[in-house]
Amino acid sequence: MLRYIVRRLMWVGLVVIIITMLTFLIFYVIPPTDPAISFAGKNQGPEVLALIRKRFGLDQPVYVQYGRFVKHLFLGDEYGWPGFGFSYASQSPIRGELFKRLGITLQLAVGGAIAWLIIGIPIGIVSALKRRSLTDRAAMGFALFGVSAPVFWLGLMALYIFWYRLHLLPGTGYIGFGVSPWQWFTHWIMPWLVLALLFAAFYARMVRGNMIEAMSEDYIRTARAKGLSERRVITRHAMRSSLTPVVTMFGLDFGGLIGGAIVTESVFNLRGLGSWVVDAVFSGDIPIVIAVTMFGAITITLLNLFVDVIYAFLDPRVRYS
């Protein structure tokens, strides 16, 4: 197992290097905008553009820029490790801002993930066990709604109903836990649930399908034949096999959210990584885009590895050499 993990970690390193190359190529070599012009302002002459390019390091050959980019990323820069450089727009280090915003994104992702697991998995199981019942149909109706409804629409509707009309929950924005734990929690309810609804619907459908398949397997019949209680058959045998794909999905979904739940953050005015990177894209603030991209990519890669390792523990058939 250790050898497997080491080998996978080496693969992670390779993947990260490839991602740095692609990211650099997309944003520095073939950028949609010229950062120097974006930040010089209109009508700035060649002298000012040259100074800005020098300051941003854009006057160097591409391979020098890439070398410096990788060096700073892995060894750190003047602002610390990992070295993400500074934002063209705010002229301030990206690193601190990234971790500050990561905190908000993590709160959204963790809360949303807990919510979608709590909602999605039980619905999927119950629905599978009560196939073609009213409960099953209602659950699948919910899943269809969750999968079909765009997140921005759900978010806007939730705000309109629960904040604007019913005054049951506070509106948009973020309140720190230290300011008021209760306000912190109430501000998070809508973002968590809106984000969770989409994923919960997917997970409910997936768990239902897996459970139905598992319940018709021979080993379930054997378990029943051995005289195990139905509850034990479901929890010890059917659920275990039907939830393993959920672990894989969860790792990918959660990792994806670390890169920023762009729409949810935008609708609820949460200053996380997602809304940050969108603004950076529109303003041509390439270092921010790269930092968030790299951070998201590395997180997803590592979570994938983590998921693979967990998988081995969950599924006895999976063994690594």
Binding site: I262, V263, G274
Partner: peptide
């Protein structure tokens, strides 16, 4: 999942 959260939805919203 990111796909659903991404550019298409954003453009629609705009």
């Amino acid at each position: 999942m990111i796909k659903r959260e991404g550019v298409v939805a954003h453009r629609k919203m705009i």
